[in-house]
Amino acid sequence: MGVSEHTGDATAEATAGPTAAVVAAVVDAGADIAAAAAGYPTYPIAPGYQLNVRSGPGTQYRIVRTLPYGQKVPIYCQKPGERVTGPYGTSNVWDNIANGQFVSDAYVRTGSDGYIAPRCD
């Protein structure tokens, strides 16, 4: 059985390659994550959800920020972590969307129940 996390209406959880610092800087400057992804595919967060971005792959990690409704995110790599239940099922896969920023794959529509990106180191 998984953990479900909510912020407002509903919520959940997501290290990266050499472009992570650039992506984080652009995102922090208020740009859309999709524009910051530069060449990486982006995936939508479940409709109607704001998503907590965590410093590691579990709800025990601190919240770095919260993504707004309708946001799309790049996935640089994925790693196993805490099992979370969300609108796309129950999963222990966590998506790395920027340097030190993870979201639960159970809240991201990737079209797969498994890994769609390389495993994070």
Rank of each mutant, 00 (worst) to 15 (best):
G100E: 10
G81M: 02
D121A: 14
I116F: 02
A37T: 09
Y76L: 13
V26Q: 14
S104C: 11
S55G: 13
V27P: 08
Y69C: 01
P47Q: 05
I63G: 05
A29F: 05
T15A: 08
W94F: 10
A34Q: 08
A117I: 08
R83T: 06
I33Y: 00
D113H: 10
G48R: 07
Y115M: 02
G8P: 12
T11P: 08
G114C: 07
V53M: 02
R119C: 06
Y88H: 07
T85G: 03
P18S: 11
N96S: 15
L67N: 05
T66D: 00
T110H: 13
P44V: 11
G30V: 10
K72F: 01
V108M: 04
A35F: 13
T90M: 01
D121L: 15
M1Y: 04
F102Q: 01
R109T: 07
E13A: 10
V53K: 00
R54K: 14
V3Y: 02
A98K: 07
N99R: 10
R65D: 07
D28A: 13
A12Q: 07
P87G: 06
E5W: 10
M1N: 03
N96K: 09
N52A: 07
A12D: 06
C120F: 08
P18G: 11
R83N: 03
P118F: 11
P44N: 05
P47L: 06
I33D: 00
A106W: 09
S112E: 06
I33C: 00
G114H: 09
P87F: 10
A35D: 15
I33H: 01
G81Y: 03
L67T: 09
A98L: 06
D28C: 07
Q78R: 00
Y107D: 06
A21C: 15
P44R: 03
S4G: 13
P47Y: 07
L51W: 04
G2P: 15
G39D: 04
I97T: 02
P74S: 08
Y88N: 03
R83H: 01
G111I: 14
P80D: 05
N52M: 04
A21N: 14
T15C: 08
V84Q: 02
A117S: 10
R65F: 15
G81A: 02
H6V: 13
G2C: 15
V93A: 01
T85W: 00
A10S: 13
G17P: 11
K72I: 03
G48T: 08
A46I: 06
Q71L: 06
Q101L: 13
L67G: 05
R119A: 09
I97H: 01
L67F: 07
A21H: 14
T42W: 01
A29C: 06
I63D: 06
K72T: 14
G81F: 02
C120D: 03
S55Q: 14
A16G: 14
Q71R: 08
G56A: 11
A24W: 11
D9N: 11
T11R: 05
W94L: 02
A36N: 01
N52H: 04
R65E: 07
I75G: 00
A31I: 11
